[in-house]
Every structure is written in C-alpha cells, then in structure tokens.
Computed example of a mutant assay.
Amino acid sequence: MNWTDQELIEGCKRKSAKYEEVFYKKYYGYVMGISLSYSKDKALADEITNDSFMKFFGSIKKFEDFQSVKAWLRRITVNTAIDYFRKQKKFQNQTDVSEETGIFHEVNALQDLAFQDIVNLINLLQDDHKMVFNLYEIEGYSHKEVGEKLGLTESSSRVYLARAKSQLRQLVSLHLKEYEGR
C-alpha cells in the first residue's frame, strides 16, 4: 500500500506497528546514508540509524504537520551521531588551538572523482576532523554551533576544519595520482 507521509505519521502517532514498519522501510536508506557519513563503521551506522528511528518514534507526538519529515529525521540522525561521537571520544583537556595559517591550493579535480570515492576519502579523516567537516560543510552549522555541539572552542572548530580540508586535498591528490598510474 502506498501511504502518504501524513498518513504514515498519523499511524505512527497511534503507535501502529504496521505504520512504523512501513515508515522505517521507506526512510531507512535516507537515515542510513546520513549515519554512514558520520561513522566509518557499518555496525555503528546501524546503531545510529536504529537509535534515530527510536528517537523519532518516541517524539512523534511533537511532530507538526507543517514540518518536513526528511528535515526532522536528518536533524535527529545528526544529533544521534553527535551523541555517539561524544561517547566514543571525549575532548579531554581541550585547549584552544591556534589558527593555522598558510595558503592552500585548491585541487580542482573533484569532477574526476566519483561520489563514492569522495565519501571514501572523507572516511579516512580523523574522527574529530570528519565530524567538524560534516557539521560545517554538509549540515551548514556555524563554527560557534559546531563548537557548542562538540565541546570545542570556535577557533578549534576552525582549525579542525582547516586540517580536514588540508588532509582531503592531500588525499584527493594521492587518489588522482594513483588513478592516473593505472
């Protein structure tokens, strides 16, 4: 049966297992995609995905008709990933990292990379750098918001992003050299 999002939400608000199952199946790929972008490991992405759905179903009564289902699911999933990140890695004795300076040369070769290649390269980043990169570049949070979410200073968020971008440039360059050598 093809139910609209509104019908699915109403069924989920009534705690109907049938509606919850259809909703889960409909949005599983979407939520898993977000989860995978915040974890290097499929098992962890599964945990984030399942916890995100549990949080969604647990808070479904608060969902308003005017809200976007995907936007709400995305916010829940990103926040769940952040919670897992905090549990896994504590920023102990975090000191203010001074701003790195230097001119970075852009690698204008991204059009030569497939989407999966880019995802694989991002997954090679250090966990804290990857988290800052995703929150800032993909989710659109400000450095202040990233810092608040991760327990960093604003300047540390900037430095982590700069380091992530620098490392990505190096990885892209190495990937392209490897690709050309084939």
Rank of each mutant, 00 (worst) to 15 (best):
residue 61 K to N: 09
residue 61 K to E: 15
residue 61 K to D: 14
residue 63 F to M: 07
residue 63 F to E: 07
residue 63 F to A: 06
residue 64 E to G: 03
residue 64 E to W: 01
residue 64 E to H: 11
residue 64 E to D: 11
residue 64 E to S: 11
residue 64 E to T: 04
residue 65 D to P: 10
residue 65 D to H: 07
residue 65 D to V: 05
residue 65 D to L: 03
residue 65 D to S: 06
residue 66 F to A: 11
residue 66 F to Y: 13
residue 66 F to C: 08
residue 67 Q to L: 12
residue 68 S to M: 06
residue 68 S to N: 13
residue 68 S to P: 01
residue 68 S to F: 04
residue 68 S to D: 05
residue 69 V to T: 07
residue 70 K to I: 02
residue 70 K to Q: 10
residue 70 K to M: 03
residue 71 A to G: 10
residue 71 A to W: 00
residue 71 A to H: 01
residue 72 W to Y: 15
residue 72 W to A: 03
residue 73 L to E: 02
residue 73 L to T: 04
residue 73 L to G: 07
residue 74 R to A: 02
residue 74 R to D: 01
residue 75 R to D: 09
residue 75 R to A: 10
residue 75 R to I: 00
residue 75 R to W: 02
residue 75 R to P: 01
residue 75 R to M: 07
residue 75 R to K: 11
residue 76 I to S: 11
residue 76 I to P: 09
residue 76 I to C: 06
residue 76 I to V: 07
residue 76 I to W: 06
residue 76 I to N: 08
residue 77 T to C: 03
residue 78 V to Q: 03
residue 78 V to I: 13
residue 78 V to M: 01
residue 79 N to F: 04
residue 79 N to T: 06
residue 79 N to H: 06
residue 79 N to W: 05
residue 79 N to P: 00
residue 80 T to M: 05
residue 80 T to A: 02
residue 80 T to S: 01
residue 80 T to D: 01
residue 81 A to M: 03
residue 81 A to G: 01
residue 81 A to H: 03
residue 81 A to P: 02
residue 81 A to C: 04
residue 81 A to R: 03
residue 81 A to W: 04
residue 81 A to D: 00
residue 82 I to G: 02
residue 82 I to S: 00
residue 82 I to V: 14
residue 83 D to W: 00
residue 83 D to Y: 00
residue 83 D to S: 08
residue 84 Y to H: 08
residue 84 Y to F: 14
residue 84 Y to G: 00
residue 84 Y to P: 01
residue 85 F to Q: 06
residue 86 R to M: 07
residue 86 R to E: 01
residue 87 K to P: 00
residue 87 K to L: 05
residue 87 K to W: 02
residue 87 K to Y: 00
residue 87 K to H: 06
residue 88 Q to T: 07
residue 88 Q to F: 09
residue 88 Q to V: 02
residue 88 Q to W: 04
residue 88 Q to C: 06
residue 89 K to C: 00
residue 89 K to F: 07
residue 89 K to I: 09
residue 89 K to E: 11
residue 90 K to S: 08
residue 90 K to R: 09
residue 90 K to F: 05
residue 90 K to Q: 12
residue 91 F to R: 07
residue 91 F to Q: 10
residue 92 Q to M: 09
residue 92 Q to A: 08
residue 92 Q to L: 12
residue 92 Q to V: 12
residue 93 N to H: 09
residue 93 N to L: 04
residue 93 N to E: 09
residue 93 N to T: 01
residue 94 Q to V: 13
residue 94 Q to Y: 08
residue 95 T to W: 07
residue 95 T to M: 12
residue 96 D to K: 15
residue 96 D to R: 15
residue 96 D to L: 15
residue 97 V to R: 13
residue 97 V to H: 11
residue 97 V to G: 00
residue 97 V to A: 12
residue 98 S to H: 09
residue 99 E to L: 15
residue 99 E to D: 14
residue 99 E to H: 13
residue 100 E to M: 15
residue 100 E to K: 14
residue 100 E to W: 14
residue 100 E to P: 15
residue 100 E to A: 08
residue 100 E to S: 13
residue 100 E to I: 15
residue 101 T to M: 10
residue 101 T to D: 09
residue 101 T to S: 12
residue 101 T to Q: 13
residue 101 T to A: 12
residue 102 G to S: 13
residue 103 I to Q: 13
residue 103 I to E: 14
residue 103 I to F: 12
